[in-house]
Amino acid sequence: MGPIGIFDSGYGGLTVFKEIAKVLPAYDYIYLGDNARVPYGTRSFETVYMYTLECVEQLFSMGCQLVILACNTASAKALRTIQQKDLVAYTDTRKVLGVIRPTTEIIGHYTKTRQVGIMATSGTVNSHSYILEVNKFFPDITVYQEACPMWVPLVENNEINSPGARYFVKQHVQRLLNLSSNIDTIVLACTHYPLLLPIIQNLTPEGIRLLTQGHIVAKSLADYLSRHSEIDLTCSKNGIKEFYTTESPKAFNQKAALFYGERVSAKHLKITNS
């Protein structure tokens, strides 16, 4: 038995972890942020896969049998390869899950016009993962995408209330809605974006639903564990949470509270090439 691993390229996954811990408070968790190599959103498929695999294997070595990629870019560019290629090397029940499938398998319950917008990093948009996954579950839905490369730096640098943040949010919301006037649901498909939610809401027309992923992923994980007792039995349950970063713990702790909602105390972890 071991903790559930929560991985992200930086801080954004803390918005997902926060919701998972609310829904499943009894479980033990290890959060790992690869802050030394952020951002992932502009990197190649090969690089994101390599970095993600290194971090997943690190979490495995720390006792995690189940790892959640709380990062849309890692889920888009690395998850499938890890599941199909790398996990077969293990003879136990180790699993790696992402954040894209839980979101796409329920998106049809929210849209009435069957036209959905995705706002994400360039890496996630270019992977077309959301288009492919939504069409698997809901072939009648049309997906429109908008890459928002400035949003993560704005959040990471705590500029979410600046005039620049409002400018870039307005620019990308308008670009997305210019693709179709019938979009009635927008997925904020980056775990950093919930921190921009008040501005996005202010600049989005009434009647358009904005979906963040934290609660969706948390509910999906709870359902997954209830349906897979063999996986649930590998998860220790002492309510312990540990935080690790590949960058400076002091810098991580200062920013982490913004995403997690409370103070954390992280430790440094050396990953190959980080």
Rank of each mutant, 00 (worst) to 15 (best):
L196M: 05
S181A: 12
Q84K: 10
I141E: 07
T121N: 13
S181E: 14
G108M: 14
G117Q: 13
N182M: 09
Y130R: 07
T124Y: 03
K95N: 03
Y167H: 14
Y90W: 12
I82G: 03
I100E: 04
S162E: 09
N202C: 03
N178H: 12
H128T: 13
Y144R: 07
S129I: 04
V134S: 01
I82S: 04
Q83W: 00
F138K: 05
I106F: 02
Y193M: 05
P102G: 10
V99L: 01
L154T: 09
L203E: 15
F137G: 01
I131D: 10
W151E: 02
Y130W: 04
T111V: 07
S162Y: 10
V143C: 09
T81E: 03
A78M: 07
H172F: 06
A147C: 04
A78T: 08
E146P: 01
T113M: 05
T113K: 15
Y110W: 11
R80W: 01
A165D: 12
T91Q: 12
I118T: 10
Y90M: 10
T93C: 03
L179W: 05
Q83I: 00
M119V: 15
L188F: 06
V125I: 15
I106D: 04
S127P: 06
L196I: 07
Q115N: 14
A189R: 08
L154K: 12
K112V: 12
A147S: 13
Y110V: 02
Y144F: 15
I141H: 09
E105A: 08
L188W: 11
T142V: 14
F138C: 02
